[in-house]
Design a protein around this nucleic acid. Structure first.
Length: 597
RNA sequence: GGGGGCGUAGCUCAGUUGGUUAGAGCGCUGCCCUGUCACGGCAGAGGUCGCGGGUUCGAGUCCCGUCGCUCCCGCCA
């Protein structure tokens, strides 16, 4: 017999009854009845009930076991007595009668129980991640993650993509985030950077003629965390293709993404054909470039209904050119309690308030202060424009759209959540397209790239090269071949058709106010490659952690990452980051200049 | 860097307008229990109420500061 086990804890069935078996695993739960003692023995594969009574030579030993001890158990498999079967367990028809127990690994008092579904503080879960990972929920999430990655890989290979490995120690890359730096021992004062993404490498792979690249790529960014943004490191399904148009990239990627959502989505409906939504439309209708399309609310411009109206605040705002009033319709929200709740929520968000009109029985013409101020005719105009009826409400934001769009978007989400308008049984995916090439930087008072500088402008080359840097309006109107995939309000990925023409790149950098020296210094390697025969190419990089998070139904990335860091980018289990020895620092020619505490 | 929430036993939490010895469940220790699967019963140990200062006759409770965790904004695709 094998040293540790003849079967796993999930394997035994009625057909095995009578066999002498050996199991190893963790004591998940112990129920000691004095004369009979049950242990649910757990391993990766499942749970088997093992039992001892005073006739068993192992009974005394069994009484000393505690939760989470690792033991080897020998015994005979028998049918459970009639009426004591457990239909919830695959092994629930049988049990092992224990003849021998060997303790393989004892456990002290647990800082956090493995049994049960109780929630625990984040820092304890992270410090004892190995215990947390034993728990069914997290254990399953991690297995799901692996299966999803397997599936992505299989689908990519089926699509003619080949997997490559790119360097981890490299030079600072252009994604715009803060780099993680690694000091060079051999070159005093110089640093490697960990890649924010294998951006330049994958483009170079295209220049090298490999045609279709992909990689389950680790990416490193030294920026603050969010629930859906891991600190430090994360993984992308990074891919790039040569001789393609934007549509070719969509045609290659969409089936992969749709495929995994269908495969792992537990029956939730998945968008059959991802709609393409222009960036500007997304902002107008949803107040976000990552709209949750499960939320049926679409905003509209209702400036006409307020221009010159009796509601002086809005009328005044509308006197400034470019300002607008947007309406956020709230079907079924037509009562004062809800309107007031939204209003105080808005104040909590730092807004002066949130104007509203609501329609209820007896006041079909519209109720609320705004309705009174603008009168029945304009109120009706709004109701008609938005298709609102008795029982509905509508909220209004006013000002410069650029300034309020973000808030309007959160208000749309808030209304959808509060009124339970957001469908829970779907994965609604879409492409966001036509991102602007440039944007106005208020900080630097100049035009700058709005995403990364590697996208091809959606414009003829000759026309682009002839652009006047002073023609700000024209520059701000240029779109790039830049696109995102969004699912249920989460940005899954962003990609682009790359700018592979050195002269276009120089022009683009010039328009954004960067000289040739900057271009050469930062991206000289790639630019050089582009001068020696570069194919048109493009790609995208879906975030794997976020895909898994959505498919696992989790709201925090930590639930789908094996050993995550906390919000402050600390690994509480391994104690990273940590001090290093003076010797190590000396070798790296580093002396510390720490902030005074 | 800024804002919100939280911090009481190993863990999850309760703790009234400030008032005797700060409670419960799980876990832990001991005893009882032969069919449980959240087993049950009895007894017990375990707390500088995050930390520091203040107000008060008296602070877990009120005030100020500070630290930790978390969520959000900034930042980041």
């Amino acid at each position: 017999m094998h040293r540790y086990r003849s079967h796993t804890c999930g394997a035994l069935r009625e057909s095995d009854i009578g066999k002498e078996v050996r199991l190893s695993g963790w004591c998940h739960r112990i129920r000691d009845h004095g004369g009979v003692l049950f242990i649910d023995l757990r391993d990766h594969y499942g749970l088997t009930q093992v039992v001892a009574d005073p006739d068993s030579p192992a009974f005394k030993m069994a009484e000393t076991l505690r939760a989470e001890w690792v033991v080897r158990i020998d015994g005979k498999l028998r049918k459970r007595p009639a009426g004591t079967e457990n239909a919830d367990l695959p092994t629930g028809q049988v049990e092992v009668y224990i003849t021998e127990i060997e303790v393989l690994g004892a456990a002290g008092e647990l800082p956090m129980p493995v049994f049960g579904e109780q929630e625990y503080p984040e820092d304890i879960r992270l410090k004892y991640r190995f215990l947390d990972l034993r728990r069914e929920h997290l254990h399953n999430n991690i297995m799901l993650r692996g299966s999803i990655i397997d599936s992505l890989r299989t689908r990519m290979k089926a699509g003619g993509f080949f997997e490559f490995q790119t360097p981890i120690l490299t030079a600072s890359s252009p994604e715009g985030a803060r780099d993680y730096l690694v000091p060079s021992r051999i070159h005093p004062g110089k640093f490697y950077a960990l890649p924010q993404a294998p951006q330049q490498f994958k483009q170079l792979i295209m220049v090298a003629g490999f045609d279709r690249y992909f990689q389950i790529a680790p990416c490193f960014r030294d920026e603050d965390a969010r629930a859906d943004r891991s600190p430090g490191e994360f993984y992308q399904l990074d891919l790039e293709m040569s001789f393609v148009t934007q549509q070719d990239v969509f045609d290659a990627v969409e089936p992969v993404i749709r495929g995994v959502f269908e495969e792992f989505g537990k029956g939730k409906k998945v968008t059959p054909k991802f709609p393409m939504i222009p960036y500007a439309d997304a902002l107008r209708k949803y107040g976000s470039d990552k709209p949750d399309l499960r939320n049926p609310i679409e905003m509209q411009d209702v400036s006409d209904a307020f221009r010159g109206s009796g509601f002086k605040i809005f009328a005044k705002i509308l006197e400034t050119r470019g300002n607008a009033v947007w309406a956020i319709p709230a079907p079924t929200g037509g009562n004062r309690a809800f309107a007031d709740r939204m209003n105080s929520w808005a104040q909590g968000e730092g807004q002066p308030g949130l104007g509203y009109i609501f329609w209820r029985e007896g006041e079909e013409g519209g109720a609320g202060p705004l309705a009174k101020n603008i009168g029945p005719e304009r109120t009706k105009q709004i109701a008609d424009q938005l298709g609102l009826k008795v029982g509905d409400a509508c909220f209004f934001v006013a000002g410069k759209p650029k300034d309020f769009v973000k808030f309007a978007g959160s208000a749309r989400t808030k209304v959808g959540e509060e009124l339970k308008l957001i469908a829970q049984d779907r994965f609604d995916l879409c492409w966001i397209v036509d991102f602007p090439m440039f944007e106005w930087s208020d900080e630097e008072k100049k035009i700058d790239f709005s995403h990364n500088p590697f996208s091809m402008p959606n414009m003829g080359v000759e026309e682009f090269l002839a652009l006047d840097p002073a023609d700000t309006d024209k520059l701000l109107s240029i779109n790039a071949f830049q696109y995102d995939i969004v699912c249920n309000g989460t940005e899954l990925s962003s990609g682009a058709i790359r700018n592979h023409r050195p002269e276009v790149m120089e022009k683009a950098f010039g328009l954004a106010g960067y000289g040739k020296d900057v271009l050469e210094a930062k991206f000289g390697g790639m630019l050089n490659a582009f001068r020696l025969g570069a194919p048109p190419h493009g790609g995208i990089a879906p975030g794997i952690d976020r895909i898994v998070m959505l498919l696992a139904g989790e709201e925090n990335l930590r639930e789908v990452v094996l050993f995550p860091m906390n919000q402050k980018a600390e690994d509480l289990l391994m104690s990273a980051p940590s001090d290093v020895t003076p010797k190590q620092l000396k070798e790296l020619h580093i002396s510390l200049n720490l902030p005074k505490k």
